[in-house]
């Protein structure tokens, strides 16, 4: 590990505009430093900033960037009104990691693209202009949507997929003041030559995530995640679905996919197609097909597109069946449904 300075930011003001890498829970950044992918000269520890609360805000919630993933997942408000967010969080990493990982860090966590993690491989995301080492390599886990030859990586977060479905907004503070970006668009898609511009400008910090009032979406929301290992594994594909259903008719629908693109993938077309339709198998099947419109394999990952459609379908079906009273023991698991006896 390279030598670096360590400073602790006691106030938000001290963190804004500070030069160096922000250190929150450290579960991602420190790993990247150990393998030589991140080589900051200076760490600014923001883990003690007073951004560690979940507050009511305009009918919704405002989650501080330092709130630990585990705390969000057990927050009564979240469980009652944003159950797909809790389920997504509990499906990620391990209990120990969730106790350490922060909201801001989860949003900003790096891709798990193994070529990004290997300093000996070219990687436009790590070293702009060096090329994409993944193209033509072992790409079973790479993107099928929104990719370019500049970068085919996926964003690994489960939490962000649920946040995108709930229309969450990222609150950012920087030297230039405050700005807000929809979660759905926070992670830039790659451009022709590379991974796209970074989501934050130097000196900026995520302070909060704002969740609008879910309204009737609260009752019918689920997250489903496909993976070979039942826990402690990133998604092959995943989906968050939330529905508002009145008299068997869908009045509002949200659908987002994980594991398919460099950002959580909101499926707007599918959502549109569901609106006003009966909450039926046919409606969901049509929506699931629309969910991956434009998908194409970026390597040996052609199976991801049908899998993404099917995980979307499963999430919609589960959401329509209603959020269970308690989250299942294997959150988001394919095997945790009421739909399998």
């Amino acid at each position: 590990m390279n030598r670096f300075d360590y400073v602790r930011a006691e106030t938000l003001g001290a963190a804004i505009g500070a030069e160096g890498a922000l250190l929150a829970g450290g579960t991602n950044l420190l790993d990247l430093m150990k393998i030589g992918v991140a080589t900051p000269d200076r760490l600014i520890d923001i883990s003690r900033l007073p951004l560690d609360r979940i507050e009511q805000s305009g009918g919704g919630l405002r989650i501080g960037a330092m709130v630990r993933n585990a705390e969000i997942a057990r927050d009564p408000q979240v469980l009652a009104r944003y159950p797909a967010l809790a389920e997504a969080l509990l499906s990620g990493a391990s209990a120990q990691l969730r106790n350490a990982a922060t909201t801001g860090g989860n949003v900003m966590q790096a891709t798990r693209c193994s070529y990004f993690q290997d300093p000996l491989s070219p990687c436009n995301r790590r070293e702009p202009g060096s090329g994409c080492g993944a193209l033509g390599g072992a790409t079973r886990n790479h993107a099928v949507l929104g990719w370019t030859e500049g970068c085919i990586a996926v964003h690994p977060s489960d939490m962000c997929v649920a946040l995108a479905a709930y229309d969450a907004v990222v609150e950012i503070t920087g030297p230039g003041g405050l700005r807000e970006v929809a979660m759905e668009e926070f992670h830039p898609l790659p451009d022709a030559d590379g991974a796209g511009k970074p989501p934050l400008m130097p000196g900026e910090i995520i302070t909060h995530i704002r969740l609008p009032d879910p309204g009737a979406l609260a009752r019918n929301a689920r997250y489903v995640k496909l993976r070979e290992r039942t826990s402690f594994a990133f998604a092959i594909v995943s989906a968050a679905a939330a529905l508002a259903i009145e008299d068997g008719v869908i009045t509002e629908a949200r659908l987002a996919l994980g594991g398919v693109a460099a950002r959580p993938w909101r499926c707007r077309k599918a959502e549109e197609a569901l609106k006003g339709q009966p909450a039926s198998a046919e409606s969901f099947a049509r929506a699931a097909e629309l969910a991956t419109e434009g998908a194409r394999p970026s390597g040996d990952n052609a199976a991801k597109t049908p899998l993404a459609q099917r995980i979307a379908l499963r999430a919609l079906e589960r959401a329509a069946a209603g959020t269970p009273e308690r989250l299942p023991a294997l959150p988001a698991s394919v095997f945790a449904g009421d739909d399998n006896g």
Partner: peptide, 8 residues
């Protein structure tokens, strides 16, 4: 799972 291929 017949649709998703996950094995338990």
């Amino acid at each position: 799972d017949p649709d998703l291929g996950q094995v338990r």
